[in-house]
Design a protein around this nucleic acid. Structure first.
Lengths: 120, 120, 120, 120
DNA sequence: GTGGTCTAGACCACC
DNA sequence: GTGGTCTAGACCACA
């Protein structure tokens, strides 16, 4: 698995898990791969996976049954959505608009660019 | 001068210089403050300023006359714009679209909203 | 380890690493000594080693896995060779020819001389 | 006038003067441009020109008549030739050969390259 | 005065 | 343990 060098690996893994939850690849209550499994699969140090899981747990997205494994929490999807929407409207969107203005890129330019990529 | 804790100081200083170039506060060929001057002014260690200048130089944005100082390069503005546009279309925009999709937010809605604000 | 006083230590270390790569002492993907290790081994400050590694990285010769170490990049050998050949034909050779001309030394004589030595 | 960033400007100016002497643009006993003249012409700080002149003087290549100016010394050409030949055979040539061997460049390759450039 | 390099030692996030 | 950044202070060559 490939990782961006600018962002913590544990965060990138957390993102990928959240995205699986949002896209219903994982549903509420599902058991997710064990630390060792995921470590082997991604080629990442188990400590790093563990950090991902515990942080997701303390966010209420995952739950832990001792000796059994980690499971998707009952409110997982809602928590992730709330969290992401907040981030989207408070950070991503304003930053996006600011950059576009600074670079003098119009909505039409963006639209054209998206169509071009979408056409591929 | 105040700095965000999340991003390297040398990068924040680089950004501020680039913005001065984009806004024509510095023009092509202008001498920019010496390493020690800017260090004193910002309260940052000269080594850190040096790092900023060196990186901007190797990007072609600054030039250097030994024993004299650093100067804005002839292509500075173009390089910065190219660089930023590239980042916008290759990273910011796709990430933005991806998040919007995951959150089930319609791009059309966002655009309508933006156009409305733009009209203010 | 001994260093020439005329050339930056960080450059001399970079050279020695490149030569290890060219001579196959390091192969593609190999982990090279950690910053602290090499610093201790050479008696040089870790910051200086860090500078060497960073510059080799931005040249594409080294790669970097966070918290793990620096590794020889997949194209390392090719990059080094290209870089050196370019320098040879664009700088070393013209300078050599220019000096020979100024000194009124015939290139043919030099060639003959070299071939003779090469035959030994 | 353009200067390489890697080598002291005062050395580059010294070289250009020596080359004028070798190519008979300046002859023994000729008055060379005053410090101020050459400074204005090259756009270089007069201190730097002065350094060049005094170093060439202490090498016996230039002579100084107070209140009059700097002049090419009687042995100038000989001194420069001796000096350069020494450097050529002790440094330039061995370094040239070493690099060619390291890069696996044959004399024929070099020959071909020279012809190509000469043909332009 | 300018840039450029090096050292020593600290602290951080991450694996 | 790893890399990454920052500070403080020194010394150098050069203009």
């Amino acid at each position: 698995m490939e990782f961006e060098p600018t962002k913590g690996i544990y965060l990138q893994i957390a993102d990928s898990i959240c995205e699986k939850i949002l896209s219903n690849a994982y549903s509420n209550g599902d058991k997710i791969p064990s630390v060792r499994e995921l470590a082997a699969e991604t080629g990442v140090n188990p400590n790093t996976i563990m950090r991902t899981y515990t942080e997701l747990q303390s966010a209420g997205i995952l739950e832990n049954r001792r000796g059994v494994g980690f499971f998707v929490g009952p409110e997982a999807k809602g928590i992730i959505l709330t969290q992401r929407k907040q981030q989207f409207f408070n950070q991503t969107l304003p930053e996006f608009v600011k950059q576009a203005k600074l670079l003098n890129i119009s909505l039409d330019d963006i639209w054209a660019n998206l169509k071009e990529k979408g056409g591929k």
